[in-house]
Design a protein around this nucleic acid. Structure first.
Lengths: 224, 224
DNA sequence: TCCTTTCGTCGTACTAAGTACGGCAACCGT
DNA sequence: ACGGTTGCCGTACTTAGTACGACGAAAGGA
């Protein structure tokens, strides 16, 4: 059988940090962070638990790693484009990615050591704002609102009890039923007259909010 | 010794669901959600672990419970006031409470069965928006942005690696040092020229963002 | 006042998960 | 062919959630 080595530095192709993190993402996508254990991860990789620990120090490092992978998947604004469309695209991408990996949102809070993709992401966004003409102070303002909105929206989406807009009535109806009569009148009105109507999709609220934020920021620019 | 019974229904005053949830909050405040275990909770209560399970079904119920306690602590807008100041007050309160209990933010995502205080909170906010004159659709828009911003901001605050504004330089300086030369130019500029300057406090960004959002919503109202 | 019923608490123990430690085997260059 | 290196695994210890059943104190009736 032919050797598989193709040069001076060709190891055994086994289990790299990279492969571990990818697998960890799959497992988390399938079963949430709670379902991501060293053992489930090892099973996914077709390997015994302790093998993993030769490539990462501990589970926290895995969690940090997959958060950074998530940031890596988010589109960055282009250097050349106008700031508004570029930031809109980046924000939409962020939202889309976070929707695909809902566990990422809750990890954001507990991870305090940002990886390279995370830093790059922040760097490029800040750069876009500065180039658009925002002062350093206003850049701080702008980035804070924008990020807060995107993360917050993702957090809300992640905590929705339904995945598909079509599922809403089936899920919402029993919840409304269980509410004590007249206790939450506005909530009931809101649910029956809006949320449970056909065509409702919470995700649609994203564009509204994003435009509101970007408009507000634009106003900040012209005032100077 | 006198009996302690003061009527027909005077139980033993021992370990109620209420006391358990309060204690769980304290433990989480002290050591984060990770530090909240049935055993640590039992210790805090001066009781053995299994005693807890006579008042709650499982740990998830405790987590749901303390999330609802957090919502309970958030001020509600008053029925009589004007919508803008009232929502501003409610949002500020939410942010303050979430800052005190940073673990709550990450729990929001994983909990899908809202408690009474949570429902009340939503109900009153929706009511405030409706009374202000927002249509049902616009109420949905408005609530989504506002909540996204508040939660997102809380999420950002919770993931800051420092607690006190004064600590910033000590924490940020080594992070900047560790960044590869020229890799993140905007980030470095931002850190050195803004974040590490005396007087910087990320929390100050909240009011800016909140005003931006509320202004945007007000504009929505007059356009009709 | 004593016994019984009931309810709250506890002891024990099982399972899952993170991970330390040391052994072993496959592959490398010589 | 051979020793070293690298990567993988077996075993086992620790912590955490929690099922099950026993124990003990409080409340009510005889």
């Amino acid at each position: 059988m032919a050797k598989r080595s193709s040069g001076p530095a060709a190891p055994r192709t086994p289990l790299t940090r990279e492969r571990i993190l990818r697998a960890a993402m799959s497992v988390a996508d399938a079963g949430g962070v709670a379902g991501l254990t060293i053992r489930s991860l090892a099973t996914e990789l077709g390997v015994k638990p302790m093998a993993v620990y030769h490539h990462v120090a501990n589970k926290d490092e895995i969690l940090d790693g997959i958060v950074d992978l998530v940031f890596d998947a988010i589109e960055l604004p282009a250097e050349e484009g106008e700031w508004q469309p570029e930031l809109r695209r980046a924000a939409s991408s962020a939202r889309a990615v976070l929707k695909q990996h809902p566990w990422a949102v809750s990890l954001l809070e507990s991870r305090t050591s940002p990886g390279p993709a995370t830093l790059r992401h922040h760097d490029v966004i800040i750069g876009t704002l500065r180039r658009a003409g925002f002062s350093v102070t206003d850049t701080a303002h702008a980035y804070a609102v924008l990020d807060a909105f995107v993360y917050g929206f993702a957090l809300q989406e992640a905590s929705l009890p339904f995945d598909e807009p079509g599922d809403v009535p089936e899920v919402a109806a029993p919840m409304v039923e269980r509410m004590p009569e007249g206790q939450y009148p506005h909530l009931v009105e809101f649910a029956t007259e809006h949320v449970m109507r056909p065509g409702y999709d919470f995700g649609d609220e994203f564009d509204f909010g994003l435009d509101l934020v970007l408009d507000g920021l634009a106003r900040l620019l012209v005032e100077d």
